[in-house]
Design a protein around this nucleic acid. Structure first.
Length: 548
DNA sequence: GTACTGGGCCAC
DNA sequence: AAACGTGGCCCAGTAC
């Protein structure tokens, strides 16, 4: 495969094709469009700098290698711990990405850092190749780097395409729930009504529930014995103020998080274009910035409406994390519990626990490190029925408590705790330790253990999701048969274990099949030919609100 | 005015 | 107010 390394240092774009001397590139978009016919691998410092401008010029690329993202993985991976990259001092390759994409798709104009001159992409690429070649398991880390890189392409394409959003419908929804849009500094009519009821119930005519501190004082003044103003605590109390207060909070949340201001800021030309940040979470999950894309409330998903003649195919991986844990640990009993369909039902059928709800609580507790309530009570039963699976997360937790690192299936490795953490451990364990410092140290160690416990599962699930999306993208490209990607079925939204594809209505059945097949393929990529099934729930809908 | 923190709640 | 992981983002309140 041809490799083309692009370099934009000094304001000039140069390209190195395989090992030939580099050439100067005049027009980037036409150069890439021309060379793309050979299906090369594009190597560049940062997809979020290069790719949005290519997409804006209607140039899509098939594959790339994002040096910054891959550097971050290689820097810490236990599979490449002996490489020059892992041993090198901190450099500009270790910085977070330098470019962000505005909602409009335009690039923000950031100043180039002064030390950019040291970022020779060709040299870095060769070092990264050497790190992979010298790895104990090159195929795993290779797959991870490929998946991370294609993820960066998908992220840019998601932003470019945008999630179809009906602003008129959203406005109607807000008006129905909150009342008509109020003037500046006013509350919507329905919120104001509820506020009056709340004030009457508390006998506090000027109480402002938007201030937690003030609200707490008012609640206590009214004789309510609460330590906070949070929902879960208020729900336990009987008082005429509780109902209007919770209702007020609900409407207030809608107004502030996804109200008219959000609509005006984030919906441009009928599309929601959040900025996706691949690798933005330590575990390898994506982050997003802008518009709260990873927390679109179910309440407003009705405003996500497909274009005329188009549909959404919405797919989410069923019980992804417990299935990942089963596959990761090779626990045949747990794999068997998930083989027939609903994994939690399978756990009940095996006799390990009595109800589906208990199975779910217990598994979540095992993966998060929960100890209290039903969740904690279920753990010993699960540990008896599934010793390898539970053993894997327990081992990860113990490693974290000792300050050690853990890794995902493909070799993404957790960070080390910082110096303050280590000092607290020494303070709690040394000769000068007191019961108080020992307690603090234990609590802190357990907390880091919960992090590493979750890291292996969440991080491997993120790897599965990347492989799934890469497979989806590849299949949809074939389906597009040469059309520009947004003129055919294409991804428009992603959140951890769920994707939305926007497609012409007559493609929806084929798309659904591709989503399922890509899920199985992702399982095989991570866990080999005998991987357990990764079922997906698929819904074909006109509006996102109809899914699930 | 900006920067930061805590409380709270949304998502997976 | 957390318990029990990963996040983003809003508001109030405070420091500067």
């Amino acid at each position: 495969m041809t490799t083309i390394v692009l370099d934009h240092r000094g304001g000039t774009i140069r390209a190195t094709i395989d090992d030939e001397p580099s050439i100067t590139v005049g027009d980037l978009a036409s150069f890439v469009a021309d060379r793309e016919r050979e299906h090369p691998r594009w190597v560049w410092d940062d997809t979020s700098w290069w790719y949005p401008q290519l997409l804006a010029a209607r140039v899509q690329v098939e594959r790339c290698f994002d040096l910054r993202l891959c550097h971050a993985i290689l820097r810490r991976s236990h599979l490449t711990a002996e490489s020059s990259i892992a041993r090198a001092p901190w450099s500009s390759w270790d910085r977070p990405r330098k470019q962000a994409v505005a909602p409009s798709g335009a690039l923000f104009d950031f100043d180039e850092p002064a030390d950019d001159a040291n970022e020779d992409p060709l040299a870095e690429f060769r070092e990264q190749r050497a790190a992979v070649a010298g790895s104990a398991e090159p195929s795993r880390i290779e797959l991870l780097l490929a998946a991370e890189s294609v993820g960066s392409l998908i992220a840019a394409e998601l932003t470019f395409a945008g999630l179809p959003w009906d602003a008129t419908l959203h406005d109607a929804l807000l008006t129905q729930i909150l009342g008509p849009r109020p003037g500046a500094g006013e509350r919507p009519a329905k919120m104001q009504e509820i506020l009056e009821r709340l004030r009457a119930a508390l006998e506090a005519p000027s109480a402002n529930p938007d201030s937690p501190v003030e609200l707490l004082k008012v609640l206590r003044g009214a004789g309510l014995n609460v330590a906070s103003t949070s929902k879960w605590e208020l729900l336990q109390i009987e008082h005429p103020a509780i109902e209007p207060l919770l209702e007020y909070k609900k409407l207030s949340r809608l107004l502030t998080a996804n109200g008219w201001a959000w609509l005006e800021t984030w919906i441009v030309d009928g599309r929601f274009r959040p900025d996706y940040v691949p690798g933005g979470v330590v575990t390898g999950r994506w982050a997003t910035s802008g518009g709260g894309a990873l927390q679109l409330p179910k309440q407003i998903r009705g405003a996500v409406v497909a274009d005329p003649g188009w549909m959404f195919v919405v797919a989410d991986a069923s019980q992804l994390e417990p299935r990942i844990l089963a596959a990761l640990s090779g626990d045949s009993a747990m794999i068997a519990a998930g083989a027939a369909g609903d994994m939690y039902e399978g756990i009940v059928a095996s006799g390990a626990v009595d109800t589906r709800e208990h199975a779910k609580l217990g598994m979540l507790g095992a993966m998060y490190g929960g100890t209290s309530g039903e969740s904690g009570r279920m753990l010993p039963r699960l540990a008896r029925a599934y010793p390898r699976a539970i053993g894997l997360v327990e081992d990860a937790a113990r490693a974290g408590e000792r300050g050690e690192q853990v890794s995902t299936r493909l070799g993404r490795t957790s960070p080390l705790p910082d110096a303050a953490w280590l000092q607290t451990q020494r303070d709690g364990q040394g000769e000068l330790a007191t019961p108080a410092t020992a307690t603090i140290a234990r609590s802190q160690a357990r907390s880091w253990g919960r992090f590493t416990r979750n890291f292996v599962v969440q991080g491997t699930a993120a790897e599965w999701a990347l492989c799934w999306m890469a497979g989806i993208r590849q299949r949809l490209t074939t389906l597009a048969a040469g059309r520009w990607f947004t003129d055919s079925a294409h991804l428009v939204f992603f959140v951890h274990d769920e994707v939305v594809v926007h497609c012409p209505a007559d493609q929806s059945e084929e798309v659904a099949r591709h989503l399922r097949e890509a899920a199985s393929a992702a399982g095989r990529l991570l866990f080999g030919d005998h991987a357990p099934p990764f079922p997906v729930t698929v819904a074909t809908v006109r509006s996102y609100g109809e899914a699930k």
